[in-house]
Design a binder for these strands. Structure first.
Length: 872
RNA sequence: GCGGACGUGGCGGAAUUGGUAUACGCGCUGGCUUUAGGUGCCAGUACCUCACGGUGUGGGAGUUCGAGUCUCCCCGUCCGCACCA
């Protein structure tokens, strides 16, 4: 074998071998134990970034690990190929999004292959392909039939200059990103999916997902936001016209503290009041400025204006002023809220600002009410009792809510109600590069679904967006069609679907990608659910919730038999790196980490950095997520070319556990490379004796006494590595591999038989442990040293329990919890013997001599703690 | 604003889940090898102290024989918020 580790050669050969043997094609064989390992598919943005490399390396390590444990592993890959960036690139380069997307896919596929991922490429799919998106359309039509899909008006960001709908991302500080014009909210008709129909089921099912991180489940539960409360109405009569202002509250017990109501700017009452109140009309118009993003709405200055209208308190009949509030959302509940400034912080601030009355109606133990000192204390449901509330005085939360709901119901003005924060999913996008919504608009028949036999509605692939609306609207060949119902000339819907639709079921399609007559088939049930799903924490809510919803819709349509798509979920951390910059005439210029030289003091502490181009200092700007704007990204391609894929994989897995953020470090990569080179050198040095042993059939482990301590350590490290593989903590797996190498490093394998056997056993274990992480490297050495043909099929190493047995154990001795000594005792020692040995230790006696031992704690295998006090 | 995380040497991180804090790697210091080296190898490296010993896991309190780990309060950083994917 080569004395030198040449990654390019090793990796080329290994990849060619896997390719020609079809090693990673997962057979549809339901008789074998399956493992479906899935990483979130990439958006084909152009080149792989380190976040992709990390995501797919984690998935690949798990796939190879499960395969070596004997499972039939499916690891597919595809492309989330519709989306906004392709339209932006089209505008910048005058290239159709389709062409740009396909070129990116071709390039990134080569990159993925160069990293040696164990992917079954025969199942590759792209969501922009008609074979895929036709099933989006087909299932959408089923949802229309079942009523899950429906049409209603929704609010979008509108750029009045470009006359186009903007994504939240395209709104910067309330203005359109290209025009700088203040963005307006505009209502348009859209299609919605009734995800709220599954709100209860999806919420309750979270308890049955033990393989999901608790924080993700908490986030989903909060997002669904099931709350128990009362929906009730304030009756009114204006100019002889009677009506009801409906609101929802979870704090019906505070209803007697209502001092005003607030409605959204789009609320009918606001519009009515504005008819003869120009000032209010101006205010309402102002409220309609700005983006629809909830984060923006929630952080704006809370402003309001009185409508001059008064409604009646449903229980007391007192008049209650109605205000318009810019913080009230029309899309949530009924677009109106009751305000109880005495017991709600936001209402309290609003009341102070506009000098509205504040009334205490809940007793707050230990707090006294006064206008100056009152802190709006959101009375604890367990403790607060009603005061100043007439008939409800003295009732606790539950009693008060019951009594008030009963009284409201008697007047037919309200009832208890369960409400969700979750809103139905609006899927219409006024964009070109997406899946067409299969609807035809006919003057006579209205909105007519496209019949199944006319699917797919093909998206023209040669449009070039120009930033002024959806280019499909200018494509007569797309728009003009005939009505499927009456045959008259009609127009196609030009809205496309949210790209979250595409990503809501791709995991199922991998299982039956070649089926051109049905969305799913039996093979989907054989592979599903996904055993391990891996992706960024940023998808914790939306993508995962939509996928859980879509799976249930498919289940209820008889397309899959599972309830949940993903049994286990791993949310990987971000890839971050140091930033470097200079401020130049008000502009901040960022330097790539590869283009600066870091300065350190004698202790290795960073003192500054110099730019390579001119040797002048740059500012060290802190650790940030790798991004184009901060120019702190590292190109995986360059690294693979310099060090090989295995080194990149080793570093990526070693630098941090999968869930934590991973900080980039050039010297850390060097460390990974050094490790592989040292291991290679060891294998080269041991080649002769190991190959000799492997040539003679089954190799028995060394039984000599001299081998015992080494074998004990080898198997202890193996045990730790197996434990950490089991919990997917790969950084400590690699740590164990490094320790194994350090341990084996001093062994002269060629000098006698027991050393050769220990070397053979240790190296065999090490190569298999490392194989999922550095697959090309281990594949190569496994063959070179004669262990066998394919390390993937070599079987997973197991701990030799007999080798772990120790004659003597070490224990530490504490006195009052402080470390005072170490003792060695026979492993068979009982509690008394251990305690006596601890008391006898010379250094321990220094600290116990003039004290009284009150208590002795013996933790087997770990420590002895002597609790002492002064003699008196 | 709401929701969810995180905080340990100069740095990334470890701590078998309440039991020796800092494993492994990087960096740094010193030495050896090499024609040379940005290669390789060896040793040292939390802080204070000559030492005995003491201190130390963002800050403050608490539970415990024992807390990085559990509880409460505070500070800081990061992620998501429905049209980025």
């Amino acid at each position: 074998m080569d004395e030198q580790y040449l990654p390019a050669t090793v990796e080329r050969e290994a990849q060619a071998s896997w390719e020609s043997n079809g090693t990673f094609q997962a057979p549809d064989d339901a008789s074998r134990e399956k493992f479906y390992c899935l990483s979130m598919f990439p958006y084909p943005s152009g080149r792989l970034h380190m976040g992709h490399v990390r995501n797919y390396t984690i998935g690949d390590v798990i796939s190879r690990f499960e395969r070596m444990r004997g499972k039939n592993v499916l690891q597919p890959m595809g492309w989330d190929a519709f989306g906004l960036p392709a339209e932006n690139a089209a505008m910048a380069n005058s290239v159709p999004p389709a062409q740009w997307t396909h070129e990116n896919i071709a390039y990134m596929k080569v990159q993925l292959q160069s990293l040696g991922f164990a992917i079954d490429w025969t199942r590759e799919l792209a969501t922009c392909h008609p074979d895929y998106y036709r099933w989006n359309q087909w299932l959408f039509l089923r949802m229309l039939e079942s009523g899950i899909a429906y049409k209603k008006s929704g609010v979008v960001n509108w750029d009045p200059v470009d006359q186009t709908v903007l994504a939240n991302e395209q709104v910067i500080d309330g203005r359109g990103w290209r025009t700088g014009a203040p963005v307006e909210k505009r209502e348009i008709p859209m299609y919605y999916l009734e995800i709220t129909r599954y709100a209860d089921e999806m919420l309750d099912a979270l308890d049955d997902l033990p393989g999901w991180p608790p924080q993700v489940k908490t986030m989903q539960a909060n997002w669904i936001g099931r709350s128990h409360g009362v929906r009730f109405a304030f009756p009114y009569e204006f100019d002889g016209e009677a009506g009801r202002l409906w609101v929802f509250t979870t704090r019906a017990d505070t209803i007697m503290g209502v001092t005003f109501c607030a409605v959204a700017a789009e609320h009918p009452l606001a519009e009515r009041a504005a008819r003869d109140n120009p000032e209010l009309a101006v205010f309402i118009e102002a409220c309609k400025q700005g983006s629809i993003a909830e984060a923006d709405i929630a952080t704006i200055d809370k402003k309001g204006m009185p409508t001059g209208l008064r409604v009646d308190h449903p229980l007391t009949g007192e008049p209650v002023e109605v205000w318009v509030g810019n913080y009230v959302l029309m899309s949530y509940g009924d677009g109106a809220v009751m305000a109880v400034p005495g017991h709600d912080e936001r209402d309290f601030e609003f009341a102070l600002k506009y000098d509205l009355p504040i009334r205490q109606v809940i007793d707050v133990p230990g707090e006294s009410f006064s206008d100056e000192a009152w802190q709006p204390w959101y009375a604890d449901k367990e403790r607060g009792r009603c005061v100043n509330s007439g008939a409800y005085d003295g009732l606790d939360y539950l009693e008060a809510v019951d009594a008030i709901a009963t009284d409201l119901a008697a007047k037919e003005l309200g009832e208890k109600r369960i409400q969700y924060r979750l809103r139905d999913w609006g899927i219409s996008r006024q964009r070109y590069w997406g899946c067409p919504i299969p609807i035809v608009h006919c003057d006579a028949c209205g909105d007519v679904p496209v019949p199944d036999d006319q699917l797919p509605v093909l998206l023209p692939d040669d449009c070039v967006p120009d930033g002024h609306g959806n280019p499909l609207n200018k494509r007569d060949d797309f728009i003009n069609t005939s009505c499927p119902a009456c045959g008259a000339p009609a127009r196609r819907e030009t809205d496309t679907m949210d790209t979250f639709v595409d990503s809501s079921w791709y995991y199922a399609r991998y299982c039956c990608r070649d089926n051109d007559t049905a969305m799913t088939d039996k093979r989907v049930d054989d592979w599903m659910p996904v055993d391990q799903y891996i992706g960024g924490i940023e998808h914790a809510i939306l993508h995962l919730l939509y996928s859980r919803f879509w799976t249930r819709v498919m289940r209820d349509s008889g397309l899959v038999s599972v309830d949940e798509p993903f049994t286990n979920l791993l949310t990987q951390g971000m890839v971050v790196a140091e930033t470097y910059y200079r401020d130049d005439a008000g502009r901040r210029i960022f330097f790539n980490p590869a283009d600066v030289d870091v300065q350190r003091d004698d202790k290795g502490k960073i003192t500054g950095a110099l730019a390579n181009e001119d040797g002048q200092p740059v500012t060290v700007g802190g650790i940030e997520k790798m991004s184009k704007s901060k120019n702190n990204g590292v190109d995986p391609q360059t690294l693979v070319e310099r060090y090989g894929a295995d080194t990149v994989r080793v570093f990526t897995m070693f630098a941090a556990p999968p869930e934590q953020s991973l900080e980039w470090s050039d010297s850390g990569v060097e460390g990974g490379y050094r490790f592989l080179k040292r291991l290679w050198a060891l294998a080269a040095a041991w080649q002769a004796p190991v190959v000799l042993l492997n040539g003679g059939g089954e190799v028995a482990p060394a039984t000599d006494d001299a081998a015992r301590p080494l074998r004990q350590e080898i198997h202890a490290l193996l045990q730790q590595a197996l434990h950490d593989y089991g919990r997917y903590q790969f950084n400590t797996v690699i740590s164990a591999c490094m320790k194994l190498l350090n341990l084996l490093g001093g062994l002269e394998a060629g000098t006698d038989d027991w050393r050769a056997r220990v070397a053979h056993e240790g190296l065999g274990i090490l190569l298999r442990l490392l194989a999922p992480v550095a697959p090309h490297f281990c594949h190569h050495l496994w063959r070179e040293l004669g262990y066998g043909e394919e390390i993937l099929d070599a079987g997973w190493p197991g701990v030799d329990e007999a080798a772990l047995v120790k004659d003597e154990i070490e224990l530490v001795v504490q006195v009052n919890g402080k470390l005072r000594g170490q003792i060695r005792v026979p492993a068979s020692s009982d509690r008394e013997a251990i305690e006596q040995a601890a008391r006898d230790d010379a250094n321990v006696q220094r600290f116990t001599a003039d004290k009284v031992v009150r208590k002795v704690i013996v933790v087997p295998g770990r420590l002895v703690n002597l609790v002492v006090t002064d003699a008196n």
